Simulated scan of single mutants.
Amino acid sequence: MIELIKDILIFISSLGILIASYRLWIERDRKNIIYARIHILGVIDCACFIIFIALGKILLAIVYLILAPFLAHAIANAYYKDKYKDSD
Rank of each mutant, 00 (worst) to 15 (best):
S14A: 13
F11I: 06
A20C: 03
I40K: 02
A78H: 14
K6D: 07
E3F: 10
L71S: 14
I44N: 05
Y64E: 15
G56S: 12
I38N: 11
F70P: 07
A54Q: 02
I38A: 09
G56H: 08
I2T: 12
R28H: 04
K83D: 00
H39F: 11
Y22N: 09
I66G: 06
L67I: 15
Y80Q: 08
I51E: 00
M1S: 12
H39Y: 09
S14T: 13
A74G: 07
A20W: 03
I66D: 05
R28D: 05
N77V: 11
L71G: 10
I10C: 08
L71K: 15
S13K: 01
I34C: 09
I33W: 00
L41W: 00
K31W: 07
L15Y: 06
V63P: 01
R37A: 03
I26M: 00
R37F: 01
D7S: 12
L60S: 11
I17D: 02
I50K: 00
A78P: 04
Y84C: 07
S13G: 04
I44P: 00
Y80F: 13
P69K: 03
A54T: 08
P69I: 03
A36T: 13
D45Q: 13
H73L: 15
E27C: 10
D88N: 14
A47K: 00
R28C: 06
D88V: 03
Y84T: 06
L4P: 05
L9P: 02
S14H: 01
L60F: 04
D45L: 13
I40H: 14
L67N: 08
G16Q: 03
K6T: 11
D29R: 03
I33S: 06
D86W: 05
I53L: 09
I2H: 13
F70S: 10
I17H: 02
L18I: 15
L9M: 13
L4H: 03
H39T: 11
I50G: 00
H73R: 14
H73F: 14
A78I: 15
I19A: 02
K31A: 13
N77Q: 12
I40V: 14
L65G: 07
I44A: 07
K31I: 14
V43S: 15
Y79S: 05
I34E: 04
A72F: 06
L55F: 05
R30S: 12
F11C: 05
A20D: 03
R23H: 06
S21Y: 05
A54E: 02
R28K: 14
I66M: 12
E27S: 10
A47M: 15
D86K: 04
V63Q: 03
E3I: 07
R23C: 14
Y84I: 12
S14Q: 05
A68S: 15
I66N: 06
Y84S: 04
K31L: 13
W25D: 00
I58M: 11
A76T: 12
K6W: 08
L41Q: 07
I2A: 11
N77I: 07
L18R: 01
I62M: 11
L55P: 01
I53F: 11
L4W: 02
